[in-house]
């Protein structure tokens, strides 16, 4: 079985961080029925700049941008099967989950939460894998 491998981007070019900042990754890659999304940090859809505010705002921005990326390609948040959530400080976990719940009200995906230093002072980074196969 040789799966087709394709690269996909968000409709909003401001949110194409790897293209704008010449980073060696793609926003997401599809192989067969799975989509692998690169780690996303809070970026303003208006300016493309980092938006570093309270953790709740940062999580909201990341998940809204993730929704935009998936929907730009005809997919949706409810197709996500797994998320890896990284927090710069695990004391922010409760605030993160509170926002997270709004985006995944029912049947949430599998998720792993880890704490580690992040680049550029970001408080959160989230990546995911989605299953976009038919039926």
């Amino acid at each position: 079985m040789r799966l087709t491998r394709t690269v996909h981007a968000p409709s909003n070019p401001m949110l194409n961080v790897s293209a704008r900042q010449a980073r060696p990754h793609s926003p997401c890659v599809r192989a067969g029925d799975y989509v692998f999304v690169s780690g996303m940090v809070p970026v303003s859809p208006e300016t493309g700049e980092r938006t570093q505010g309270p953790i709740a705002d940062q999580v909201e921005t990341v998940l809204a941008n993730m929704q935009h990326l998936l929907e730009s390609n005809g997919w949706s948040l409810d197709q996500i099967v797994r998320l890896n959530i990284t927090l710069a400080d695990l004391l922010h976990a409760d605030d993160m989950w509170r926002v997270f719940r709004k985006f995944f009200p029912d049947n949430p995906p599998a998720a792993t939460l880890i704490g580690m230093q992040l680049s550029f002072g970001n408080l959160v980074e989230i990546e995911c894998t989605a299953y976009v196969g038919e039926g």
Partner: peptide, 21 residues
């Protein structure tokens, strides 16, 4: 990391997340 990494995946690079641990 990015400087050397990009040499091996120059076109349509994979999705990636960098973790420090």
């Amino acid at each position: 990391l990015n400087r050397v990494y990009r040499q091996y995946v120059p076109n349509a690079p994979p999705a990636r997340t960098v973790w420090s641990c």
